[in-house]
Design a protein around this nucleic acid. Structure first.
Lengths: 346, 346
DNA sequence: CTGTTAGCGCGTTCAC
DNA sequence: GTGAACGCGCTAACAG
């Protein structure tokens, strides 16, 4: 068994299985603490035989250096904080994974905080992170709308991911939703589609607006315009997708391509089309945004989608934070390039 | 703007905006370090006026005590590690949220690690956590199948969540899948259903087996048996749900209730039923497991489901870890009670 | 090559 | 009430 509690098998409370310290190792190896330290840290000027003795002692005692003590001298803790606005949402997770991955391969550990979209909680977690002297912080928003920066004097670098800071002197990383819109259009155009409808989500979201902008501009560049003249805004749900698609095919039976605000809308639209006897992708192509696996690969045909590369976004945020910790980083907003994932629906 | 890098506006490198230390506060307040410490920690025997001066100084310098230094003396770091086997999967997240919540309201911060189902990575993260002297560790599995315990001597308490440890002297928390199966049956029975089919997922999963066990036992207790005699095992996908449901209604048109291995299968089954002109829930009820919102609330009718209360599971794991850190905790496997979420499909 | 000394920032006796 | 002194575990100068 692995030891399951802090207590040992020893007599009773007394002589707790204190984690071995450098001193213990030094004593066992018969050297001074300093020498032991040097040996373990691969510093120069330590006789090989001595180093070996120390290493052996360390292994025997299962010695692990106390990071807290180390941080005291170095000033750096090798930790960063990740404040997510809404872990529940499906956008935070991939970003978080990307960041965790980028950091994990290095030496830094990640503190996870869920602010649940509440400013008070955010403040609370922020304080906790500063008390722990994290070397930096990544703030992950729930939507791509710009958000006010963290309040107060933050003595460490901060990177805003997904939701950019409204302060342009901050460093932010966001998906390139305009480009995503353009990509959706070129994808359909290259499949020979010309009469394209855009069933979007909630117009209050920056993402909805930016994608619509990208779509409009790409169509214009091709000398085309949306079927129905403009995008249909509604909700980010399947239900909205079903209803909106119904109206589109009723009013514009010539439609041969649908760009949907996200994969849920896309799925709803697909359902309506199939129910009305339309053949997808033969008669009309369907493509959404987000590339949410469960939504896109569940139905038949499977749904094409624009992947916003959120994991890459998280990784980039981690790298930027890393650089900021080392020195300066150019402030402003970075945009992560999306990619088209073609499946059966287009 | 918030300070975005470690450097200041000061002359050049020199005199870095070092985070204020207790000494700075003491100096500014004109007292000794010890007094400042007492004042800030609400210790007795400090004159009120002195305390106020210290607090004012602390505020002015934006002083935050250095946790690392604190941990050095206290021995405890107030941090725990959360090693997830597969963050990507949809089960880790709610557990993680529950745990983060339970800890967050206290004083402890959570280190997040993603082992990606790889033993090497797990070992790597484990070492990192031990180096950071976490007070405890929660290991979150990707499936409910029992897993071997962490290897090596772990000097801190460990709680296994979702996937129990094969070592019965460890402490584990898992969903009660047998009960979940029973609940599904009683739900359908109380809705007057008697001819129930069970379209399960991958038989290699403990969850599939346990749910099937619960279902069988509840039916037996009611003097009934599954339509077709036994459960249909396959995959955890919509596609499997669609196909399996088709075979069920072809062979057993008298079926009036379907218990599906998870919400995806459930959704697939619903689609097949509707396509074949069956009325859900009028003609036949459908219920799944997991209560995955996007799956259950997307389609129309919305899908009933058994919620395994994973967030509660995470919270329980956190509480158990907390208790283990304080003292002993009864080893063994705890099971979290599920709950039925009734929607339109039943 | 190795050991001694001096802090890192804080909490805690224990004198004053 | 208040402050001087010590130690937590470790690293970095300097001696030896």
């Amino acid at each position: 068994m692995t030891t399951t509690t802090g207590t040992t098998d020893a007599p009773e409370g007394e002589s707790e299985a204190r984690r071995a310290t450098l001193r213990d190792v030094a004593t066992l190896a018969g050297v001074s603490i300093a020498t032991a330290s040097k040996a373990l840290n691969e510093r120069a000027h330590v006789r090989e035989s001595t180093r070996d003795r120390v290493l052996a002692a360390a292994t025997e005692l299962a010695f692990t250096p106390n990071q807290a003590a180390r941080s005291l001298t170095s000033g750096q803790t090798g930790t960063v904080g990740l404040i997510a606005d809404d872990l529940d949402g499906r956008f935070s997770l991939p970003i978080l994974m990307g960041a965790e991955d980028a950091f994990g391969t290095g030496q830094v550990s990640v503190f996870l905080c869920d602010a649940r979209g509440d400013a008070i909680r955010e403040r609370y977690h922020l304080d906790a992170l500063l008390r722990r002297k994290v070397d930096g912080i990544i703030v992950v928003g729930a939507r791509t709308d710009a958000r006010p920066p963290l309040v107060g004097r933050i003595p460490v670098p901060v990177i805003y991911a997904y939701a950019p800071s409204t302060d342009t002197t901050d460093v932010s990383v966001v998906p390139d939703d305009v480009q995503a819109g353009r990509d959706a259009v070129s994808h359909l155009l290259s499949a020979g589609r010309q009469r394209i409808a855009h069933i979007s989500g909630d117009a209050a979201y920056t993402a909805a607006q930016e994608r619509a902008t990208g779509i409009a501009s790409a169509l214009e560049a091709a000398g085309l315009e949306l079927v129905g003249g403009s995008a249909q805004f509604g909700a980010w749900s399947e239900q909205w997708g079903r209803g909106a698609a119904q109206r589109v095919i009723d009013q514009y039976p010539e439609v041969d391509g649908m760009i949907c605000g996200n994969d849920q809308i896309s799925r709803g639209a697909l359902e309506t089309l199939q129910r009305s006897g339309w053949n997808v992708p033969h008669q009309t192509s369907v493509i959404g945004f987000d590339n949410w696996e469960v939504m896109t690969t569940g139905p038949s045909p499977t749904l094409s989608s624009i992947d916003l590369n959120l994991e890459q976004l998280g990784r980039t945020a981690a790298e930027l934070l890393f650089e900021s910790i080392q020195g300066q980083v150019e402030p402003g907003i970075r945009r992560i390039t999306p990619r088209v994932v073609t499946r059966e629906s287009s």
